[in-house]
Design a protein around this nucleic acid. Structure first.
Length: 426
RNA sequence: GGAGAGGUACCCAAGUGGCUGAAGGGGCGGGUUUGCUAAACCUGUAGUAGGGAAUUAUCUCUAGCGAGGGUUCGAAUCCCUCUCUCUCCGCCA
């Protein structure tokens, strides 16, 4: 959410950014609703002031035994009270509408964000690693996984439906090794504090990080309750500090967490239907930061670097993309995606997404800090990034580390996490 | 799931309809005294959100005692709903 006063003073600028993003918001209605709201506030507050003053007079008169005079004021104030009630109701209608409008206005892109329409306009800013040249016909992870009996798509479908998969044996162990490995690296080498979050949250938390109200159809809701299954650990972790004023000394706060993530994938029919690239449930290791506003872009660079470190240690080729205005997402001011090379796609595929939200989430979630002991509280900047999506990392390892006989070599850094296993074979 | 007790400011805590503009204590900031520390005394301590007037220093109003409604001229206080915490019972991994 953007600042009310900022929107008021920069309405044309915001229209421009909406156009660059290719999104719509009922911005034309804003000025009218905002003006009407302020008019009503002035009127109702004037009446409330009158009521407060007169009411205290009643108290004094009654104590002095002047009941007749008191009754006169009471009769008069009865009408004022009715009027206040009426105006308060009308005002609430405008305030609700104004909030609805504000919740639909996306973040302002940082000035360095390339202007573009969709993912084709994203810009590659660096590549790492060498794409392997196979001297045999490489297989896709869905074939490798089934042949090695470490991925079981049929039983996933039997038990839960499409986009659910069983991992088995060393596949399951590889998943678990990656989770531990990534958590350990971020914790011990990059200074993140590990947390293990709830996998279900209520509506306020989904609003706080911006998944709601715009993207309700992407989330799973638990019927008969107010719980949503988290689409990412970003939601519970960012909301840990909701409605809080942090001490300046506490910043920056770094958290890393593993969680399952649940996504309805509405509108993704027919995309990535094979394999484990796009599932309704997947594991992810997520990094979340709360920082001083002046440091947030430096922190974003570090965040991207932290994610890249995992791919380097795993020896997986990747590239870093700067997301254009049209592909930035609703809440981000700046976003870098890291894409890993997948031989089956003969292309790079997103495996991490690192964003700086500036104060957009913090304003929604009311997360502030006090720059100095007696200064006013200001919004922190929040950032988060995957470090990394586990399922896609498994797919990338299977495909990039496959051997001609269909076996998989385990990257060296993972072997200690797998009891020294060096290869997955039939 | 059942029964009970609670939620007041940074912390503890008083407060059953109007001099509450929320007592008192602790902590923290400032001051006096002081060789230093300590102590005593004085003093400040409601952050926040939203209006309005000024304008980059301020002034003023409204809201706010877990949340949301209600009663009333007036609610921390009375009523209803919800929520969280604690204790006991039941159930459970």
């Amino acid at each position: 959410m953007l600042d009310l006063g900022f929107i008021r003073d920069n309405i044309d600028f915001i229209k421009g950014t909406l156009k660059n993003r290719g999104t719509k918001a009922p911005i034309d209605e804003f000025t009218e609703v905002d003006n009407k709201r302020r008019e009503l506030i002035q009127e109702v507050e004037r009446l409330k002031q009158e009521r407060n003053e007169e009411s205290s007079k009643i108290g004094l008169l009654k104590r002095d035994g002047k009941h007749k005079e008191a009754q006169k004021i009471i009769d008069k104030m009865g009408q004022v009270a009715d009027k206040i009630k009426e105006l308060d109701e009308e005002l609430k209608g405008y305030e609700d509408r104004l909030e609805e409008i504000m919740l639909q206005i996306p973040n302002i892109p940082h000035q360095d964000v390339p202007v573009g329409k969709d993912e084709d306009d994203n810009i590659s800013i660096r590549e790492w690693g060498e794409v392997r040249n196979f001297d045999f016909e490489p297989k896709a992870h869905w074939d490798l996984g089934v042949d090695l009996d470490i991925l079981d798509f049929e039983r996933g479908a039997k038990v839960s439906g499409a986009r659910f998969t069983f991992l088995k044996g060393l596949g399951s162990r590889l998943e678990r090794a990656l989770i531990s490995f990534m958590l350990d690296v971020h914790r011990s080498e990059h200074g993140y504090e590990e947390v293990f979050p709830p996998f279900m949250v209520h509506r306020d938390s989904m609003l706080g990080t911006g998944q709601l109200p715009k993207f309700e159809e992407d989330a799973f809701k638990v019927e008969g309750t107010d719980y949503f299954l988290i689409p990412t650990a970003e939601v519970p972790i960012t909301n840990m500090y909701r409605d809080q004023i942090l001490d300046s000394d506490d910043l920056p706060i770094y958290h890393v967490a593993h969680s399952a993530c649940f996504r309805a994938e509405a509108g993704a029919h027919g995309r990535d239907t094979r394999g484990i690239i796009r599932q309704h449930q997947f594991n992810k290791v997520e990094m979340v930061k709360f920082v001083n506003p002046e440091d947030s872009y430096k922190e974003l660079d570090k965040l991207v670097d932290n994610a890249e470190t995992i791919l380097k240690k795993l020896g997986l080729p990747y590239r870093v993309m700067s997301m254009c205005t049209g592909d930035l997402g609703f809440t981000a001011a700046r976003k870098f995606d890291i894409e890993v090379w997948l031989p089956s796609y003969e292309d790079y595929k997103e495996i991490s997404s690192c964003s700086n939200f500036e104060d957009f989430q913090a304003r929604r979630a009311k997360i502030k800090y006090r720059p100095e002991a007696n200064s006013n509280a200001e919004f922190v900047h929040t950032l988060n990034g995957s470090g990394l999506a586990i399922g896609r990392t498994v797919a990338a390892i299977l495909e990039n580390y496959q051997n001609e006989d269909g076996s998989i070599t385990i990257p060296e850094v993972l072997r200690p996490y797998m009891g020294g296993v060096e290869k997955i074979t039939e």
